[in-house]
Amino acid sequence: MCRSIKTLREPYSSDVTEQDVRAAALQYVRKISGFRAPSARNAAAFERAVEAVAAATQDLLDELQIGRTARERPPA
C-alpha cells in the first residue's frame, strides 16, 4: 500500500527513532487521506491522525515479541 514506509522492527531496522515512527505515520495518513498537505480547515484533523497512528505504531513496536533469527540460534 505505502511503498515508501519502511519496516521499523528488528531485524530489519535498528535504533528506530521517534522521527522514524512519525515519518511512517505521516506517509500512512497522506496515503489514506489523499492529501500531501491538508488545507487549513483539515490541518487539525490531519495532525491528530498522524499523532494517533504514530502512537499506535510505537505501541505495536514496543509490544512485538520477535523470535530469534537464524543468525542468533545456536548450531544444532
Score class of each variant (00 low, 15 high):
A56V: 03
I66N: 12
D59S: 06
P11G: 07
A76M: 08
F35N: 04
V50M: 02
A70I: 13
V29N: 00
A76V: 08
M1K: 05
R9M: 10
G67L: 15
Q65K: 15
P38E: 06
A54V: 02
G34S: 09
E51P: 00
P74Q: 11
R48C: 03
A40V: 14
D59E: 13
R48L: 06
S33K: 10
D59T: 02
S33T: 15
A44D: 12
S33A: 08
T17I: 02
R36G: 05
L8Q: 00
Y12E: 13
S13A: 09
E63F: 07
A70P: 00
A49S: 13
T69S: 15
R68W: 09
R3K: 12
I66V: 15
T17C: 03
D59F: 04
A45N: 10
A23G: 07
S33N: 07
A43M: 10
C2E: 11
V50C: 08
T17V: 02
A40P: 10
L26R: 11
E18N: 12
E51G: 01
V16Y: 08
V53M: 05
A56T: 05
S14Q: 12
L26Q: 13
R3A: 10
C2W: 02
Q19C: 08
A70D: 13
V50N: 01
S33W: 14
A76N: 03
Q65N: 11
Q58H: 04
A54K: 00
V21Q: 00
T17N: 03
Q58W: 07
S33D: 10
E10A: 12
T69H: 09
A40E: 11
I5N: 05
R71S: 06
A23W: 00
T7E: 08
A37P: 00
D62I: 03
A37K: 11
V21R: 01
M1T: 05
A23N: 13
L26G: 02
E18L: 04
D59R: 08
Y12S: 14
E18R: 04
E51N: 14
I32N: 04
E51K: 09
F46Q: 04
P75V: 09
P38F: 13
A37D: 11
Q19Y: 05
D62W: 05
V29F: 03
R41V: 09
R22S: 06
I5Y: 04
I5V: 15
E51Y: 02
A52F: 01
N42R: 14
E72N: 06
M1F: 03
N42W: 12
A43K: 14
L64P: 08
A70E: 14
E10S: 11
Y28A: 04
G67C: 10
Y12A: 13
C2L: 06
E63C: 05
V16W: 02
A24M: 03
D59H: 06
V50E: 00
P38D: 10
S39F: 09
A23Q: 06
A52K: 08
S13F: 08
D20M: 06
R73K: 14
R71A: 14
V29C: 01
D62Q: 15
D20R: 02
A43P: 00
A40S: 10
A43H: 07
A54M: 01
E18V: 01
D15S: 12
A56S: 10
V50K: 03
T17L: 00
A25L: 02
R3F: 07
L8I: 02
P11H: 07
C2T: 12
I32E: 08
P11K: 07
A40D: 13
A37V: 14
E10V: 09
